[in-house]
Amino acid sequence: MLKRTPLLALMIGGVLAILIILIFENPARPFTVGQGVFLLFLCWFPGMGVAMLFDPYAQKAREEFLKINFYEEKK
């Protein structure tokens, strides 16, 4: 994995968290700071997915696993 990937994930996750707050937050029930931090933590994971799309190591891992058939009979 490239060193930049987790950092890129944090930035993408931050953007995603802001979008979710803008779209779903009810003004009568605003998110607390703790909930916002928890949301940022959760958004890091799909952010990591987006960042890994630009990481050659993740692509290589996929290609390697595609070569293996885990269900063929063992001789």
């Binding site: 979710i20 799909p46 997915g49 987006v50 890994m52 799309l53 891992a61 696993f65």
Partner: peptide
């Protein structure tokens, strides 16, 4: 180790 699992599974938690 693959990108789309992080994206979709992480998205499910969000």
């Amino acid at each position: 180790m693959q990108a789309w699992t992080w994206l979709l599974e992480g998205g499910a938690f969000v």
